[in-house]
Nucleic acid binder design. Structure first.
Length: 823
RNA sequence: GGGGAAGUGGCGGAACGGUAGACGCAGCCGCCUCAAAAGCGGCCGGGGUAACCCCUCGUGCGGGUUCAAAUCCCGCCUUCCCCA
């Protein structure tokens, strides 16, 4: 037997050589058709495990397949290097965030190379480099120039653990998405990006993203939450103030029996002039009690509660007086901060009215229902026919919505309007390890942007990072600056940006990562954008992917990128890797690391296992038994092919063969090639089936080796296999290829072209059914005509007896597969 | 509560209206070996049959469409994911 395959030294050898030869650098200008494949850039947390490996192996296999299929492939990698963990390390262990991040990146680069990935390392970026975040600041100033960045005081989600504000998207079930601490509410001056002005386009263009999972598009649609309705005002009795409300159910307007406003609603200040002092104090106390509550608590967990203000508003159409209530479930940030309460036709309002003894006035009845219905036991929320609604009575809900909107508009108190669930993106963070916001506050000039030529505003070293408050605010040398307009003293903004800002445009920086004059060049964008295949976890289905789409549309509007205004043509979400049925985590102690797996099983085996165990989008389970199957495959591949590397064989021309086993082997080669190419071109990426075909190929080699050891088909297969496995097991492929006498990389070769005439069987098994039940399997030459097949079947004694002497009434023929006789 | 996805041997999965269980793992038998490991060969959904051919049941449950359903449709159950 040949020497056992020494995967450790072979894998090391090729990893070193690929690095030395810059084997996977991208041409600056593609000459063949371009293909941009991208995995979501990782946060440099320190160590990679096989869960990460699944993601990068898939991207790598796609990149290598596409390269072998004749494309100029761009496959870059970088680091989402700002963020809280680095700062937490500083707080807990006194390590400088930059040092911590750098050493993590160094380790993870080593691990990515250890995984055999073929990235273009000349394009590596780290978002914490001034080289990179300088352009973050530059882009922020462009948003500001175009009115898409603004500053205001707002109640925000505050994580008491991380001491920072969070975007709504970063609050999951009322908890911080990173540390799971219960989120509180606070008021702070914050920078926002006006993503809402792109809401309609972000929504509409989802329809065009056919290469995206439907699930993800649905999630984004729900997140944007567009609803059409009417915005109109209630006058407040006794004072010169109005309360605006938005409703999608204008048809229920005559059923409004109260007005619910948010505890933070600005009209409350004006109301105080018409209500008793004691009541005003109660309202303040009520608002106070809510300010620390998270949105989730207020909208879902807490009981619906409220307080009558003592003020009344006037319904603009019915002219009825309705009481104004402050409530805990209407949010100031959502819509207008006030809603008309219609207990009869809204579940939440119904509960609220029951609890506080407010009248329930039914104004919609089911079509065909009585005009004077019995009292409701629950809200009737469906559309119907209007009753007790003045001259709108009798109309259908749909018609009434239009008619009432028109009346409100005619009276000058309302108009049709569109409301979104999506809110503007809060980007300020009271943290150190992020991009400083390039704004100065001058006593004379006010808010002043840092001029472009003064960028980047550098993050100062040696910040006092203690976990309390903002480190930059405590650094006078950073805070104190000179106003670029008047030369007077100015104070810097001490907040840094949400890290989703960096990751919203990094795919463009890869195009010219070292350009000192621009974030990227339009020319490069024209060459390489859009990203043809984006690969990453579904946990980014809303935040990152929505922000990146927003940025790209803004860039497109500026003319900084051309073509389609969507950045990612196709998107693929890979599934998790579990171990012992649970997500891998340090605390559970069930992490399978890259280093230990590479040492124990080999990288090729690991890659094959991750691709083989399940389709890539499914959750897979890491098992020692499972990986051992792929370790066996690698050794078997070596044992079968290595001895044949010295035999002459032309991979591109199959040899002439006679025997059935020989034909079967040639066929297995071409079936495997067909599978790999189909899975790639269909973008299904179910390489698990391709690897199963490679198993069958090795089985066919074993069989032929036993029956016809001198067959030229064996050397042919042995020379084709390195090409076939190259995208999945790149090291052993390269080693076998070299041993076959080749001096250039197997990864730059064209993928084997499957030949349908070799795949076609000359003898097939024709399944004969009678009334849909299998009654015979007949061996026959392929390409039988329908009448030949029928004749053959009717000649078969077993089929004849199944027919029970009856003549088939009808038959159905699937060529080379099946004949169904119906009697 | 609403929306979405999924349910196939002991396990992971294959089969995108046409032979259910490819391929792998585990298990069992054999060869090799002093022995073991590795390797190689074979068996491997349930029932019927001494046995082969064969018959029959079988893709969460119940219906339906079709010559033909794991696949399409309707209802239910379970699990997971999003949203409330």
């Amino acid at each position: 037997m040949a020497d056992a395959y020494d995967f450790r030294s072979v894998e090391r050898k090729w990893q070193e050589r690929w690095l030395r030869d810059r084997a996977f650098d991208t041409p600056a200008v593609p000459t063949r058709e371009k293909y941009y494949v991208l995995e979501m850039l990782p946060y440099p947390s320190g160590d990679l495990h096989v869960g990460h490996a699944k993601n990068y192996t898939l991207g790598d296999a796609i990149a290598r397949m596409m390269r072998m299929l004749g494309y100029d492939v761009l496959h870059p990698m970088g680091w989402d290097a700002f963020g809280l963990p680095a700062e937490n390390a500083a707080i807990q262990r006194g390590i400088d965030p930059a040092t911590w991040t750098r050493s993590n990146i160094a380790n993870m680069v080593r691990q990515l190379r250890l995984m055999g990935t073929g990235y273009d390392w000349s394009r590596e970026i780290a978002t914490c480099d001034p080289e990179y975040y300088r352009w973050n600041q530059w882009l922020f100033l462009r948003f500001l120039e175009h009115g898409l960045a603004y500053r205001r005081e707002a109640p925000v989600n505050w994580c008491p653990h991380d001491q920072t504000v969070l975007a709504n998207e970063q609050v999951i079930d009322g908890r911080c998405w990173r540390c799971e601490t219960l989120v509180e509410r606070r008021n702070l001056e914050q920078w926002f990006l006006k993503i809402t002005s792109y809401a309609d386009r972000l929504l509409a263009d989802l329809d065009r993203l056919e290469g995206w999972p439907e699930r993800t598009r649905t999630m984004q649609r729900n997140w944007i939450g567009r609803s059409e309705g009417v915005e109109f005002s209630f006058a407040v009795e006794g004072i010169d103030a109005k309360i605006d409300v938005f409703t999608t159910r204008a048809d229920t307007l005559f059923g409004s029996t109260f007005l619910a406003i948010a505890a933070e609603h600005p009209v409350i200040a004006a109301l105080k002039s018409v209500i008793a002092k004691k009541r005003a104090a109660e309202i303040d106390a009520f608002a106070e009690s809510l300010c620390s509550k998270s949105e989730l608590e207020r909208t879902s967990l807490m009981e619906k509660n409220g307080l009558f203000t003592g003020a009344y508003a006037i319904n603009p159409l019915s002219h009825e007086r309705v009481p104004v209530w402050v409530t805990n479930y209407v949010l100031a940030e959502y819509g207008t901060g006030a809603v008309m309460g219609v207990p009869a036709h809204d579940e939440r309002d119904f509960d609220f009215a029951k609890k506080h003894g407010l009248p329930i006035a039914q104004v919609i009845v089911p079509h065909g229902g009585p005009d004077a219905p019995p009292p409701l036991v629950e809200a009737f929320v469906e559309d119907g026919r209007l009753i007790a609604s003045d001259d709108f009575t009798g109309m259908s809900s749909a018609r009434a919505r239009d008619a009432i909107a028109e009346r409100l508009a005619a009276l000058g108190v309302g108009r049709k309007s569109v409301n979104y669930r999506l809110r503007d993106w809060l980007i300020s963070r009271q943290r150190y390890w992020g991009t400083p916001i390039p704004i100065l506050f001058c006593e004379a000039c006010g808010e002043v942007p840092v001029p472009d030529e003064q960028l980047p505003v550098l993050l100062p070293p040696n910040a006092p990072i203690t976990g309390e408050g903002s480190p930059l605010a405590r650094m006078p040398e950073f805070v104190n600056a000179t106003c670029p307009r008047c030369g007077g003293p100015a104070r810097r903004d001490t907040d840094t940006m949400d890290t989703f800002f960096e990751s919203s445009w990094y795919y463009l920086r890869y195009l010219s990562p070292h350009d000192a004059n621009a974030a990227w060049e339009r020319e490069d964008a024209d060459r390489w954008m859009n990203v043809d295949q984006y690969v990453g976890g579904s946990e980014h289905a809303v935040m990152h992917l929505l922000y990146a789409r927003f940025f790209y549309k803004f860039f497109h509007d500026r003319g900084w990128v051309g073509g389609d205004d969507e950045p990612f043509a196709r998107l693929f979400h890979q599934g998790f890797v579990l171990h012992d049925g649970e997500k891998m985590s340090k605390s559970r102690g069930n992490v399978i690391g890259i280093d230990e797996t590479a040492e124990k099983n080999g990288v090729d085996a690991m890659r094959l296992f991750l691709l083989y165990v399940t389709p890539p989008e499914d959750t897979s389970d890491w098992t020692d038994e499972g990986i051992s199957g792929r370790v066996r495959f690698v050794h078997r591949l070596w044992r079968l092919c290595e001895p044949l590397t010295r035999a002459a064989a032309d991979v591109r021309t199959p040899p002439e063969v006679n025997g059935g086993d020989e034909r079967a082997l040639l066929r297995a080669v071409h079936v495997a090639a067909r599978s790999a190419i189909d899975e790639t071109r269909s973008r299904r990426f179910h390489f698990n089936t391709t690897i199963a075909k490679l198993d069958e190929l090795l089985n066919a080699m074993s069989a032929l080796l036993r029956s016809t050891p001198e067959s030229p088909a064996l050397a042919y297969a042995a020379h084709a296999l390195p090409l076939l496995v190259a995208p999945f097991a790149p090291h052993i492929a390269e080693e076998l290829w070299e041993r076959s006498g080749h001096t250039t990389s197997v990864h730059l070769e064209p993928y084997p072209e499957p030949d349908d005439s070799i795949i076609a069987l000359d003898e097939i098994v024709l399944v004969v059914q009678v009334n849909g039940k299998i009654r015979g399997r007949l061996t026959a030459p392929s390409g039988l005509s329908e009448s030949e097949a029928l004749a053959l079947a009717l000649a078969d004694p077993h089929v004849r007896s199944s027919l029970d002497a009856k003549e088939p009434r009808k038959h159905f023929y699937v060529p080379d597969k099946l004949l169904n006789l119906v009697v």
